[in-house]
Design a protein around this nucleic acid. Structure first.
Lengths: 146, 146
DNA sequence: ACTATAATGTTAGGGTGCTAACATTTTTTG
DNA sequence: CAAAAAATGTTAGCACCCTAACATTATAGT
């Protein structure tokens, strides 16, 4: 029997999810929001206080430069604004534009729809195991970092 | 309790794995082989007959254009050669260079090392469940395609 | 045989993700 | 307080991955 490896399996799954996410977003008429945009909007919308870029990096496990680029694109597309914090001149506060607030509802629906497709015929038990394993892998990678 | 979603979880995990893979490859003195290169070499090395690009697309779940680009890079780096098949003028047979064959052993070691780190403290049972869930997700995504 | 369709591969264009190097501001430390 | 260190964000450069459009060769349908 073939031995399966975590690395390439996750990579492949990520590729498949990426394709499907884009198709799904297109079907929902949200062509511009193919990447992390929808998730970023949802996160900011459900946050109490002000949101800074560093919060988003942490949340989505990307590097500073990556989030900087993504937010630049979202800003260009009129989804967010960036303003320097008065308390800390380094930090930039991210705010949703009215346009982003308006489409948040549709984005959420689209996300729910795709998640329902993904998890079809997968039991609570299995999902629990799945996430638990993911957590262990993450932990193993962090420990690896010395 | 926070509801966890498959999409972003896989995305995050993929990001973390990508970082660690690159660091791992660098530690092993394989700086050029950060992406799929090591896996492609391993796959070709363990194949009986001739290998064509389409086999690699299938294997690694990437599109034609992606594999085409990756192989172009590998060719430029002296890891593979591409020659048109005599039986089918469209298909190009991929062959490892002596250099690639020589480093295959080290690549395998590096892969095994990282996989061992990743799966630490994860039981056979859990891994089985993990892969089974991945298979179900893949299946759900395929069915979705009509 | 001849046309239509399918299969294989490439290129162009764009988003995502990384590291590394940089700038700016804040905090820590001596 | 002044210098060193840390935190926040940007930019450049590169790899990966996608879709769309293209070229070429093979196969099917008539």
């Amino acid at each position: 029997m073939e031995i399966r490896r975590i690395g390439p399996e996750i990579r492949r799954l990520n590729n498949l999810l990426k394709r499907e996410t884009e198709k799904s977003a297109a079907r929902a008429g949200l062509d511009g929001l193919t990447g992390l945009h929808g998730w970023v909007i949802g996160f900011i919308a459900r946050q109490e206080g002000p949101v800074f870029q560093r919060d988003l990096e942490e949340r989505f496990s990307v590097r500073r430069s990556t989030m900087s680029n993504i937010l630049s694109l979202m800003e260009k597309n009129g989804l967010i604004t960036r303003a320097p914090s008065k308390k800390d001149g380094r930090a930039k506060q991210i705010t949703l534009t009215p346009r982003a607030v308006a489409i948040d509802r549709f984005v959420r629906q689209d996300i729910e729809r795709l998640e329902a497709v993904i998890t079809k015929n997968i039991s609570e038990e299995e999902l629990k195991c799945f996430f638990s394993t993911i957590d262990k892998i993450k932990n193993n990678l962090e420990v690896q970092d010395d």
